[in-house]
Design a binder for these strands. Structure first.
Length: 272
DNA sequence: ATGGTGACCTGACCGC
DNA sequence: TGCGGTCAGGTCACCA
């Protein structure tokens, strides 16, 4: 489900609902996520005030007053909702964070590839955050930087843009969309891209992610915003999940490839 | 250092 | 109806 636009949509929805509220209590029903929830998680969070919610890559940081932050990752299938605090828990509702206003933040994640934990480490100190590349929508991510990172690389370009040590936040859906819109074949060795192609790709990554955020993310299967509304970006997808249909630009048949074991749809005519 | 592979999980869907 | 296979939005530890 969640790529960067979905996570950013979630951040905005949460922030509007929980900023400056106090955490009354926390319930964990299943601690076995991508990494186990630490035994003292509930105790540490109790009575802390939520100051802000930040996003770094696809991680959310719930900033607590004078006391570090809760780090959340949604993995493949996770989502967060704001619900009345007496809402019964279903099978995959692993964590509830009860707030001072009779509501709670509920973390649900069927596949449990996500994580929830508390830290008091700066980004430079945190093992999961310290090696992350620049944000795609920041000025640090530009054509010059990206071209430098591609030079002499034999890896295919799709893998490079999905590598979070090159740029964060580009997952499988948006990688395919960005490559289509930049007219670059997903299997090109990164080192073969010209400066102009790098510039085009960087621009499309920014445009596609910005639009997706504006539309509330992509709705796939069960992605919902924190208020339960769907995202609307599916209406804007050109290639993801459309193998066998015709290219909206040239009407050739879109083809399917496996790259790094992940499905990749592209137009064999437009993308060179 | 860089690159490739398997591992972590559950659920939906398809063909038999 | 049931069973086995395949696939799915992500990331990281481990190996060569």
């Amino acid at each position: 489900m969640p790529e960067l636009p979905e996570v950013e949509t979630t951040r905005r929805g949460l922030l509007a609902n929980v900023q400056f509220l106090k955490i009354r209590a926390v319930t964990c029903r299943n601690r076995q996520l991508r990494q186990p929830i630490s035994p003292d998680f509930e105790t540490i969070c109790q009575n802390c005030k939520i100051l802000d919610i930040e996003r770094r890559s696809k991680y959310l940081k719930i900033i607590l007053e004078d006391k570090g932050y809760i780090l959340i990752h949604l993995g493949m299938s996770g989502h967060l909702r704001i619900l009345p605090d007496d809402t019964p828990a279903a099978k995959h509702d692993h964590v509830d964070i009860y707030l001072s206003n009779k509501h709670m933040i509920r973390y649900t994640d069927p596949r449990r590839f996500g994580m929830v934990n508390w830290y008091d480490l700066s980004e430079a100190e945190h093992p999961l955050l310290k090696r992350l590349a620049p944000e795609p929508l920041s000025t640090a991510f530009d054509a010059h930087y990206f071209h430098q990172r591609c030079i002499n690389k034999t890896q295919v370009i799709k893998k490079i843009i999905m590598n979070n040590q090159v740029v964060v936040g580009v997952g499988n859906i948006y990688a395919q969309e960005c490559l289509f819109l930049s007219r670059i074949h997903p299997q090109r060795p990164a080192g073969s891209l010209t400066y102009l192609e790098c510039e085009r790709l960087v621009e499309q990554i920014k445009v596609v992610l910005t639009k997706a955020i504006q539309q509330g993310g992509t709705t796939l299967k069960d992605f919902k915003q924190v208020d339960g509304k769907p995202g609307y970006f599916t209406q804007t997808l050109f290639v993801y999940g459309k193998a066998g249909t015709s290219c909206q630009s040239c009407h050739s048949e879109l083809e399917l490839l496996k790259i790094d074991n992940r499905s990749t749809t592209f137009c064999p005519n437009c993308q060179i």
